[in-house]
Design a protein around this nucleic acid. Structure first.
Lengths: 223, 223
DNA sequence: AAATAAAATTAGGTTTGACTAATTTTATTT
DNA sequence: AAATAAAATTAGTCAAACCTAATTTTATTT
């Protein structure tokens, strides 16, 4: 029963863990370059930190297989993600922020650690399952609902869906969505796919017909 | 209307500002040594930071007069204190922490900045006037109620008072208070002052007769 | 396979904010 | 006033986490 005390990690270490975790959700191989791009750091700096985290047994690095979180690293990364998503719920529901403002603040709040803080916050918020962007919130034991994975762009023309989550959480994208009156739970019908560039003609909540890009459709997750 | 963006300060800078502010409430002259002791740093390090903060015009240092916050430094220090005390209210009232657990967590939360975060939190908490230790919470404009300043030890024997605040916020002191059933608002009657060592015989909420030290009495503020 | 491009790594440098040790200044005793 | 003690300061060092530039390794083209 020897859980590592996450408080012992530096801000940078936590950010690396979180980034590696996030990259692991998506692609296959996690390379130093990918981490560097994701963090906005120089690859040389990433190599340094890979060495450091490897020594701490939080990751394993093999040139062939790329970077992988160890069991301990995964546990700690998930805890950081848990804190991030819980704070996002707090900021939106309790403090009245809009969903395009909460990410950056949660990036700071997620690093605050204390034995019981996340659990108390979780309870205070009523044990939410998903954060305001539709991402599942890990439970205290590390378990979490499966993330949504089907995109709007992958739907076939004619069918209708409900927005479950967004992949991109940048304020640029979220503000665009707000302008289109799209949020979590919004019903969207895919009217037509333009074969030329995969643009999507959609109907939002049964109203306006709007055309959006493939990139847009790739960043909307549906259920 | 050019308010400095406090986000631009490092963690260390903020901690120095806050410490200098706190020392300014108490004593007269603020020396490098006093700051060093308060922060647990080496005086040599403090001298470095005094230079840095002076260059940024947040403090003024004169060997004769010691360290003084400038108008800008004071404003920023008060904002940090505001955030600290608001988070303490949140942790106690919303998350159910005890008053001996909240200080350290608030020490971390206070550094998180965002244009509207403190104000939203303030509103969410119902614009509290005092934090759980009885310290006044600065308003958004920097104004705050006058801190309590009369100590239990300064009362004359026979008189009764109500606990308004505590000076020492260490968990050692706060846990001792909890054991004695003393909290903010508790009624205390000073039965007798022992002239030998200034110990105080008190009656708590009209019940037990207990003897406490002068140091104890110095750290209880009454109204 | 050789040439080229991309990725990874090494070597060395920078900044922040600490430190220790030595020195200078200021204050307090005798 | 001289001696001593305390405080302040300077000088130089260190670790963390970043950087650039150069080199090596790996992958991709031709």
């Amino acid at each position: 029963m020897y859980n590592r005390i996450v408080d012992m990690y530096t801000l940078s270490e936590e950010n690396y863990l979180k980034t590696i975790y996030r990259l692991a959700q998506a692609d296959g191989k996690i390379t130093p370059t990918a981490i560097a791009e994701s963090l906005g750091n120089n690859p040389a700096s990433v190599v340094d930190m890979i060495r450091k985290l490897s020594e701490k047994q939080l990751i394993e690095y093999d040139k062939k297989k790329g970077v992988k979180l160890t069991a301990q690293g995964l546990k700690d990364a998930v805890l950081i993600v848990r804190r991030h998503r819980l704070w996002e719920v707090f900021l939106l529901e309790k403090l009245g922020y809009h969903w395009d403002e909460i990410h950056d603040i949660a990036e700071e709040l997620e690093h605050i650690n204390n034995d019981t803080l996340a659990d108390r916050l979780d309870k205070f918020l009523g044990f939410p399952e998903y954060d305001p962007h539709g991402d599942p919130i890990p439970k205290a034991n590390g378990k979490m609902a499966k993330p949504y994975s089907v995109t709007l762009a992958a739907m076939k023309a004619g069918s209708t869906c409900e927005v479950a989550a967004v992949r991109d959480t940048s304020s640029a994208f979220l503000q665009y969505l707000a302008k289109l009156n799209i949020g979590i739970g919004t019903k969207i019908q895919l009217i037509e796919k333009i074969s030329f560039d995969n643009s999507l003609v959609i109907s939002i909540n049964g109203k306006e017909h709007t055309t959006v890009s493939q990139k847009f459709g790739d960043n909307i997750l549906i259920e």
